[in-house]
Simulated assay, not measured.
Amino acid sequence: MKKPIILVLLILIAFSVDGVAQFTEIKRIQLPDNHLIGSIMGIDVLGNSFLITDMQEQVFLFKDGTDELIPLNPEDCFPGFDFKPIHTFHLADSSIFLINASLPGYRFEADGSCRGSVEDDFIQVPPGKLAVDDDEDRNHFYTLRAFPNQPLRFKSYQETGRLVGESELIKPKFPNFINRFESGGTAVHDGILYYMLPSGAEIYRYDIKRNVSIESIPFEPEYRTAIDVDISADPSQITKDLDEIRDDHYWVSSMFKLSEEYVLIQTHFREGEEYKYGIHFINLKTNEVEEQYAIFEQSFSFARDNKAYRVFDERMEDDNVLNPGIVVYEFTGN
């Protein structure tokens, strides 16, 4: 029997570290169990629409306030589709774009119904190398691709995955590290692409309309330094190199356009035997990194429209809980 969704509205609890980076937990959403979710690989949220990509090659659409997960499977629309999802995201018009590991992908309407195929020549990218333009008239999205010892490639796509623009950006200083890890991040605001490499140190900016790079923004957290040496190309040496990097440096794990005023940056670093996350903010009016920041033990999985989201999983503690859930926070400003 289908168990109804449990939506728990919480007493507003603001949390901060040393008085900075204010977020307020506003609700916990226990995902319904009409389908079982293994481990959540990624989420994307637009309004009350949640896209959940599972590590067991499942994708679900969930509308907050309803009691069911809607499976998104291109094979229902395109028989024989080799379904190996990488990432699923909302475009500005609320339609859904699914990136796939074999066939390029598929598109769905906002309600999960079939919309159409992705262009055959669309090239897949991981979530951290993709940013969605929030201008519904354009309905574009943008990707970055790294190739060994070459400049980053910036590409602009229409809603079908048709390539409409391409250019070269910076050449990374540490190609082995950049090509080994899919972290770093991208965000778009008012026609400007903000992007960071996993190695940190700078926030790069690119004017999409004028097709030109503009002045970068320094990024210098006080708790760790940026990566200043590349890892080895020799697989047998990589573990040793990474241990040395983790002891003294941070790396950039993600970026999100949090609001019309801020881009959120998340770093990752090790403190003793524990891993922690730094939360930083780019002020979009001043184009500076604000001095206030926070350190957390769990990162946000997604952020948009003044809200941030984390995944929680209580299945080990409660046998009656069959699926993970999502905590929703509201950003109340620095």
Rank of each mutant, 00 (worst) to 15 (best):
I227Q: 10
I13C: 12
N139A: 10
V321D: 07
L242I: 15
S113D: 02
I192R: 09
A21W: 07
N323Q: 01
Q22L: 13
N73K: 14
D111R: 01
F122T: 07
G200R: 09
G80D: 06
F122M: 08
E166A: 09
L98Q: 14
A201I: 04
I282F: 00
Q150P: 07
T160C: 04
I282S: 07
E314Q: 12
H140Q: 14
G161M: 08
N139E: 10
V328M: 08
V8H: 15
F174V: 00
N176V: 11
T66H: 02
G128F: 00
E261F: 04
D120M: 08
A146Q: 03
I178L: 09
F331V: 01
R28F: 00
E261G: 03
Y329Q: 01
I29R: 03
F219S: 04
E25M: 13
P175C: 07
L130G: 06
H90L: 06
I5W: 00
R310Q: 15
I52E: 14
P175H: 01
E168R: 11
E297T: 11
S253F: 06
D190P: 06
I227D: 10
D133S: 14
F15V: 09
I227S: 11
P32G: 02
I70M: 08
Q292D: 10
F300M: 07
V328Q: 09
I279N: 15
L103F: 05
L258M: 13
T143D: 00
A187L: 03
Y329E: 05
N283P: 09
S95I: 05
H189E: 05
G272C: 00
K209C: 02
D111M: 00
H189S: 15
E317D: 12
G333R: 07
Q150V: 04
E244A: 12
L103P: 12
S253I: 03
T53Y: 12
I238D: 03
V17N: 12
L7I: 11
S94Q: 14
H189Q: 10
F154P: 05
I96P: 00
G80I: 05
I279K: 14
F83R: 01
A187M: 03
D243T: 09
E273Q: 11
F141P: 09
T225R: 13
Q292C: 03
T239P: 01
M1I: 07
P74N: 08
T24N: 13
E297K: 12
D247L: 09
N211E: 14
G333C: 03
F83D: 02
E75N: 15
V125A: 11
A294L: 10
D190Y: 07
Q56A: 08
P71S: 10
L103S: 01
Q150H: 11
D190K: 15
S39G: 05
V321R: 08
P235C: 02
S102R: 12
A187P: 00
M41T: 12
V125K: 07
S236R: 06
L69Y: 09
Y106F: 15
D247I: 03
L258R: 01
D305H: 10
L10I: 13
E290P: 01
A92L: 04
E75T: 11
G105L: 08
I26G: 04
M41Y: 13
